[in-house]
């Protein structure tokens, strides 16, 4: 079990404070760039000192503000956004670099799972970006780690490759029961990959939970914004509804959520589909998925907000931050 309760400075504009636990499964650290996700992961890996608190693995202190177990003794494989393959070695040599047993069937399983068997005798310079990332993951898994740390390893991949690798990797990690911490700034990755998510903002963990729960019930307006909720509609005194464009449907479906009337302001293309800005009768403008390109400005519509989260107004937080004791 990984237990993290620490504060990291590392020359940052603001410190990173985190309190997390991971026994098994996949924990995702989610937030914008600069939130402190990679800093926290780097500290867990052993590359950054702690200012306060400690990091434990299976009850044993790995790091506190006075001492640190070095990275090469932790057995935490660490994969960064750049594949960091060793260009002077072949793919086979890269994969076996940290492997304790070169002949083990586990290495063969990893090579097959990540579909890199055809590239073993090549040099990394001959591989595409996606292939390089697969080899980096294979190398990390072949080292037989007790914890896998992934720092946005899929960000350089196209959507199809990303989904394929994530699905294969998730199945493999579940089978091996290998705890994993994934850093990502894309919530779609978190939803596809993670069992638990810790949302981070300006160095603090602001909400934890399953991806479904966190997405459905963001604790604050800021968390909602990070999750892609774009609009906030007044609902009652001191309460507003967070609106996500993917959770708005045309028509009246009272059983799904809140129904509003409104008028179309503009229809526009978005990622291969059409969306529309709709000004609600009660005030506020939201985005909604639109059926085709033939929307007419001023057209009256009825829209349903699917189970929108209720948030206090003016960004007040429902849950206080917990400082490190």
């Amino acid at each position: 079990m990984l237990t993290v309760s620490c504060e990291i400075h590392a020359g940052r504009p603001f410190p990173v404070r985190a309190k997390l636990q991971l026994d098994e499964g996949m924990l995702c650290l989610f937030g914008q760039s600069g939130a402190g996700k990679s800093t926290l992961l780097s500290a867990i890996a052993g590359f950054l000192p702690l200012h306060a608190g400690e990091i434990r693995w299976s009850g044993r202190v790995l790091a506190d503000n006075r001492r640190q177990t070095p990275p090469w003794r932790r057995r935490f494989s660490y994969v960064e956004q750049q594949a960091n393959l060793f260009d002077h070695l072949t793919v086979r040599q890269n994969i076996l670099y940290g492997a304790p047993d070169r002949r083990s069937g586990a290495v063969k399983d990893v090579v097959e799972m990540l579909d890199v068997a055809d590239h073993l005798d090549k040099r990394p310079s001959a591989l595409s970006g996606g292939q390089r990332q697969r080899v980096a993951l294979a190398r990390a898994l072949a080292a037989d780690p007790v914890l896998l740390l992934l720092d946005e390893p899929f960000s350089a991949l196209d959507v199809a490759a990303r989904e394929q690798i994530m699905d294969a990797l998730r199945g493999f990690l579940r089978k091996r029961r290998l705890p994993t911490v994934l850093v990502s700034h894309q919530f779609t990755d978190v939803q596809r990959f993670g069992d638990e998510v810790a949302v981070m903002d300006t160095g603090a963990v602001v909400q934890t939970g399953t991806p479904t729960d966190v997405f459905a019930r963001p604790a604050t307006r800021r968390v909602a914004e990070l999750l892609g909720y774009r609009h906030f509609v007044p609902a009652a005194e001191g309460v507003e509804l967070a609106v996500h464009p993917d959770r708005v449907v045309l028509g009246e479906f009272a059983e799904l959520g809140r129904v509003y009337g409104g008028r179309v302001e503009r229809v526009f293309p978005f990622e291969g589909r059409m969306r529309a800005f709709v000004r609600l009768d009660g005030g506020g403008v939201i985005e909604a998925a639109w059926r085709d390109a033939n929307g007419v400005a001023g057209q009256s519509v009825r829209v349903t907000l699917i189970d929108p989260p209720r948030l206090p107004c003016f960004g007040s937080s429902l849950l206080p931050h917990h400082p490190i004791n």
């Binding site: 990275p71 057995r75 494989s77 994969v79 960064e80 960091n84 304790p100 990390a140």
Partner: peptide, 9 residues
């Protein structure tokens, strides 16, 4: 960093 995380001092 990668080499060290793979167990090499």
């Amino acid at each position: 960093r990668t080499s060290q995380s793979l167990g090499r001092p």
